[in-house]
């Protein structure tokens, strides 16, 4: 039990992956100028939809096909999260409702609906805490067969379910998309200065909708990963997803809106989150202080970024503002 134990690194990566998805989706939305504070709610939606899809499929057949388990839960999760993003988009982009209010409402809404259906699924499954989608969860948790033979280091790197690696690929792709493609450039312009983007012939509304909905879909995968891997295909209405969602929002700020920074930031947050278990002699209260570290680090980063005033590290300039063409 040391602070360099491979077990700690394993936990850090698993924890980090949940918020990595949440933060990547949020970056995509925020780059379009939409400050979606509904990430926790969207992760809830992704979690419960994926779980429900897998549950009903596993109920319907005595011998669930692993691939179908995977596809059904993935599609359900992504679609439900996108719908959450669509609701947010419709309210903030088309109706121009205040983004903060909409986001917070979406968080409450997502949590409520997920816990309602979580309870309902548990009842269907036979009682509190009875729901389990073992076959689907097994697919998500399957690691490379040789991972266990690679020693503790190899296990830390290769011993995870496929969503861990998808998240990494996604982060790299998103960095490339934002910085190297025409569409990415246009998206950044929309988030920075929608009036300029509009004058340049970019369809601001479409960019905002697509970025926010896809971003929500990606964030929702964090919820799916949480239910399938982190809690191994069960449902617990203990509010963990919500706290993870907020951590994802904090991570976006910590990473100064850069997907590559999100990767190491997510794992660092995961490491700090579990560190208290690996330090001898911590009392209950000191443990709680340790759990605060990711938030404290985020505040420190915010302070440093605002002191340094480097323009590249600032949030998109029109983040949180609705765009209305006639208001010139």
């Amino acid at each position: 039990m040391t602070i360099f134990s491979s077990q700690l690194f394993m936990s850090a990566i698993i924890f980090g992956t949940v918020i990595l998805y949440g933060a990547l989706g949020e970056i995509l939305a925020e780059k379009s100028g939409n400050l979606n504070l509904g990430v926790p709610g969207i992760m809830y939606l992704g979690a419960i939809a994926g779980l429900a899809g897998a549950f009903f499929y596993e109920m319907s057949t005595p011998d669930p096909n692993g691939f179908l388990c995977l596809v059904i839960s993935l599609v359900c999760s992504f679609a439900a999260s996108c719908l959450g993003g669509l609701l947010y988009s419709f309210l903030t982009i088309t109706l121009r409702v205040n983004q903060n209010v909409t986001g917070l409402t979406l968080t409450i809404f997502g949590g409520g609906i997920a816990n309602f259906f979580g309870g309902a699924l548990n009842t269907l499954a036979g009682g509190v805490g009875q729901i389990s989608v073992a076959s689907t969860s097994a697919v998500y948790r399957a690691s490379l067969p040789f991972a266990n033979d690679l020693g503790s280091f190899g296990k830390v790197i290769f011993g995870h379910g496929f969503l861990v690696y998808v998240a990494l690929v996604l982060a790299v792709c998103m960095a490339w998309f934002l910085n190297r493609t025409r569409t990415g450039l246009n998206l950044r312009a929309v988030g920075e200065n929608p009036a300029t983007a509009d004058a340049a012939g970019i369809n601001v509304t479409r960019y905002k909708y697509v970025a926010t909905c896809l971003g929500a879909g990606i964030s929702g995968l964090g919820g799916l990963y949480y239910t399938m891997d982190y809690v191994k295909g069960t449902w617990a209405s203990d509010g963990t997803i919500e706290s993870l969602g907020w951590l994802a929002v904090a991570l976006v700020i910590f990473a100064t809106w850069k997907p590559i920074n999100v990767i190491w930031g997510a794992y660092l947050f995961g490491y700090l989150r579990w560190l208290y278990n690996y330090i001898e002699g911590l009392g209950r209260s000191s443990q709680e202080i340790f759990k605060m570290i990711p938030y404290i680090v985020t505040i420190v980063v915010l302070i440093l970024v605002s002191i340094r005033k480097k323009r590249e590290n600032q949030p998109p300039a029109s983040l949180g503002l609705s765009y209305f063409r006639e208001e010139r």
Partner: peptide
Amino acid sequence: KLVDVLTATENIVLGLK
């Protein structure tokens, strides 16, 4: 009508298809 955090080139090609 320019985006501050982008370079001159990025601003010039912005929105071009």
